[in-house]
């Protein structure tokens, strides 16, 4: 295979960052009309073989892509804001994340168990998966590359405060940091603290503050943004 056929489609993540990248310049996805990489060819081949054998139907893949596309941090944000506004929902959410998601019409399609980690003025949670990339996909969508990266996965359990600082999040010494290594059957979402000064915000305005990163625990909701 030619070299230029290899690069644009690899989707290399932080597990294997090419050296010497200027990370500040890395935000734009590269759109190439280049030939598919070997791995894309393998993906097409496996999918077609399974379809030809009648093991999968093409519409199952298409439907699942639609499911993936329908999930984003907006769903988690709705749950968080409902918990902020409705104490009864908050306790149901902390008690049973799956039921609280499904009550809002959000199916936990991957059959995982959702556990909500409640931040308090004295406790801050942050989530990492050191063994792979466990993530609450049904309510947050697919994880960002940095969440799957070697750097985040290898460092967060050992120096969470330094990692949080790289995200611009400084947690005071008097606040306990609890790192959740998500490695087995549960999936976690952080329920962040509602920021001060939002007493007059409506639900929509509050949802805008609840970003993906606040539900992973690497950021705090802030009205200054």
């Amino acid at each position: 295979m030619s070299e230029n056929a290899h690069n644009p489609h690899t989707g290399r993540d932080g597990d294997n960052h090419p050296e010497g990248h200027d990370h500040a310049e890395e935000h734009e996805p590269i759109i190439h009309e280049a030939a598919p990489s070997y791995y894309e060819i393998l993906e097409i081949s496996i999918r077609e073989l399974l379809t030809e054998k009648g093991i999968l139907r093409p519409e199952e893949i298409r439907r699942q892509i639609e499911v993936l596309d329908s999930r984003s941090p907006a769903l988690g944000a709705k749950m968080v804001v409902k918990a902020w506004l409705d104490p009864a929902y908050r306790s149901r959410l902390v008690q049973n994340g799956n039921a609280a998601a499904e009550e809002m019409g959000i199916s936990i399609y991957d059959n995982t168990k959702l556990t909500v980690l409640e931040n308090t003025p004295g406790v801050h949670h942050v989530i990492v998966c050191t063994l792979c990339s466990c993530y609450p996909r049904p309510i947050l969508g697919l994880p960002p590359d940095w969440y799957k990266s070697k750097e985040y996965r290898s460092r967060t359990v050992r120096e969470p405060r330094a990692v949080l600082a790289e995200f611009g999040t400084l947690i005071p010494e008097e606040v306990q940091v609890i790192v959740q290594d998500s490695t087995a059957s549960e999936r976690y979402m952080v329920l962040p603290l509602r920021p001060a000064g939002t007493e007059n915000f409506n639900a929509e305005e509050l949802e805008a503050l609840v970003t993906r990163d606040t539900m992973i625990g690497v950021a705090l909701p802030s009205i200054s943004n």
């Binding site: 969470p160 405060r161 306990q176 609890i178 290594d181 549960e186």
Partner: peptide
Amino acid sequence: NGPDTDMLEIE
């Protein structure tokens, strides 16, 4: 590098 109260949780 952090206070004694910092914790790690895992299943």
